[in-house]
């Protein structure tokens, strides 16, 4: 567990340091922009605007306690750094319950804007938690589907030829300007079972939630809601064998926040 925590922290810090460094480099470039000396160029004395500026954000959609038959802490978030077109994106999610980290999926992508509303991403995922780790290559898309559904779909392949897929979707329903109801769902699929990680083949898991948040500010939004976690097929069997429920509805309380 300490090792896992350390690794997680390292990954997070790496994700945050990257944009900071990039920004410093960018700032230095601005101040020292030399005259190109080419009077036929659009800007002989350097760029007049910062349209290639590197921005970065860290966002936690879920940072919550789940309370039902048993309690768990859940996080799901992402960080990105980059320009309008090209970004480095880090996604992280997992559970902590009874001192064990579970379902810890850490992903690092290069993300590129490919259409008006969608980014293509390519990178890697590492399942990093209290169970044996697994590494995957990852490729997917993320964006805004018609009717304002936030969706992402990612496919994975491991060194041993295992395949996996993750589908996510959410929708923000504005009850008022600050009171927002968000249905959300995530599904994980695996081509082969992985008993060491308690995973069966096929649709392994559905994690869905309905969260009602209040945006005190855009960046600070406490919420309450319910979550449903369903473990299916072999995954469900593994859970039941371990004495854990395969279907759980829990009350959640948490904070959606971003920087």
């Amino acid at each position: 567990m300490p090792r896992t925590g350390f690794l997680l922290l390292t990954l997070l810090l790496a994700g945050m340091a990257l944009p900071a460094q990039a920004q410093m480099a960018h700032g230095a470039m601005d101040n020292n922009a030399p005259a190109s000396g080419d009077p036929a160029s659009a800007a002989p004395f350097g760029p007049p605007v910062t349209d290639e500026h590197i921005y970065y954000h860290l966002l936690f959609d879920q940072l919550e306690g789940r309370f039902g038959a048993d309690a768990a802490f859940r996080w799901q978030g992402q960080a990105w750094a980059g320009t309008d077109e090209n970004r480095v994106r880090l996604r992280s999610e997992g559970f902590v319950s009874r001192g064990e980290v579970d379902d810890g999926q850490q992903e690092l992508f290069y993300s590129r804007a490919i259409s008006t509303f969608f980014d293509a991403q390519i990178g890697a995922r590492y399942d990093l938690d209290s169970k044996p780790g697994r590494g995957w290559g990852a490729i997917g898309i993320e964006g805004l589907a018609p009717l304002f559904f936030h969706v992402s779909a990612t496919g994975y392949i491991s060194g041993e030829g295992r395949l996996a897929a993750k589908l996510e979707g959410s929708y923000d329903l504005l009850l008022t300007q600050r009171l927002i109801l968000q249905p959300q769902a995530e599904m994980n699929f695996y081509s082969l079972s992985d008993p060491a990680r308690g995973i069966g083949s096929g649709l392994s898991e559905l994690d869905a939630g309905l969260r009602l948040r209040y945006e005190i500010t855009r960046k600070i939004a406490p919420y309450v809601g319910v979550s449903y976690t369903g473990l299916y097929g072999g995954t469900g069997d593994f859970a039941r064998a371990a004495g854990a429920p395969a279907n759980e509805v829990r009350f959640v309380i948490g904070l959606r926040t971003w920087l």
Binding site: H57, L59, D84, L174, L175, T176, R178, R218, W258
Partner: peptide, 15 residues
């Protein structure tokens, strides 16, 4: 850049 309607508190709602 993160949320383009960040400053828009006049959006359409359920109401």
């Amino acid at each position: 850049k993160q949320q383009s309607d960040y400053y828009n508190y006049g959006q359409r709602t359920l109401g």
